[in-house]
Design a protein around this nucleic acid. Structure first.
Length: 280
DNA sequence: AATTCCGTCAACCGCGGGAAT
DNA sequence: TATTCCCGCGGTTGACGGAAT
């Protein structure tokens, strides 16, 4: 007997998500937690496959998701981790708080791969390509390469608490390189207090608000503008919990003004799901 | 101004791993 | 132990927007 399809595909909607669908999904998850993706669409009143809901949540709607271009630091992290882990995007993502595997995978394929090739580095092996381009001066290649690919300093590594080494679960060979390839929780348990006990989310709901201050983050994604308040047409409410945003250096900051008014570059920082959080 | 090309990224698909029975 | 089911991962696709012609 073959495997059954993950869901009944008849009558199910595909393609970009609408604001209404997003709202339904957020409301349901924040009320009930992440339990059983298979039955979620029915319970939430969505004509979507469970997998589609999970993807939409983890890659876009999740409150702690960090949007915008990867910083130089993050890019170095990705390259360094990729050299050790290969195409294990979820593992790589677990070392970059707020970043999703999908986002990192896309960034790798569209940006980093090209950069490395241009520098004469094989993106697969992270070693110099067998036949270096003769057109490009070696000195230029080297300096660029050193800037982007050199191993992270210990200081830089310590900056990221998700990379803490020394835990019993952390393989020594990776600890020695400054990385632990095991799963690293992105959110401390005390940060999760919004979901009923019936279904405790794995690592999805936090009381921190993240968003990118990158000026490039204002592009629409799947028809959804950065100003997700407007997107979901949810009512305003008072902010009562900690929140913040990620700057281009990978630092997390808290600021009500930044959240509500933008970062001074016309970039709104609020994300839609927080309204729902507060309403509950 | 219109058309084509290209880059980006959200979303889909199929598969494997692991839990449940 | 074998089978079934669900979740999550990684590869791929397709829609969209901007650049180039």
């Amino acid at each position: 007997m073959g495997r059954q399809p993950c869901c009944d595909k008849i009558g199910l909607k595909k393609g970009p998500w609408t604001a209404e669908e997003d709202k339904k999904l957020i409301n349901f998850i924040l009320t009930n937690g992440q339990c059983c993706w298979r039955s979620l669409p029915k319970l939430a009143g969505l004509l979507r496959c469970g997998k589609s809901c999970r993807l939409r949540w983890t890659n876009y709607l999740r409150p702690d998701v960090k949007r915008g271009l990867l910083s130089d630091y993050e890019e170095k992290m990705v390259i360094d981790l990729h050299a050790q882990l290969g195409n294990r995007w979820s593992k790589i993502a677990s070392h970059l708080p707020g970043r999703t595997d999908n986002e990192i995978k896309n960034h790798w394929n569209t940006h980093i791969k090209k950069k490395l090739k241009k520098m004469g580095i094989d993106p697969l092996t992270h070693k110099p390509l067998p036949t270096p381009t003769e057109n490009q001066p070696q000195d230029e290649q080297k300096s660029e390469t050193e800037t982007l690919v050199q191993p992270l300093t210990n200081e830089a590594k310590m900056e990221n608490k998700s990379m803490e080494a020394g835990s019993p679960e952390c393989p020594m060979e990776l600890v020695n390189n400054g990385f632990c390839t095991d799963e690293v929780p992105l959110i401390e348990p005390h940060e999760i207090n919004l979901v009923p006990d019936c279904c405790v989310p794995s690592s999805s709901v936090a009381t921190t608000i993240t968003s990118s201050s990158s000026s490039t983050s204002s592009v629409s994604n799947g028809g959804i503008s950065t100003n997700l308040f407007q997107h979901l047409e949810l009512p305003n409410f008072d902010w009562q919990f900690d929140f913040g945003f990620w700057d281009d250096d990978g630092n997390f900051s808290s600021s009500l003004d930044l959240l509500m008014n933008g970062d001074g570059n016309g970039t709104p920082l609020a994300q839609e799901s927080w309204k729902v959080l507060e309403l509950l």
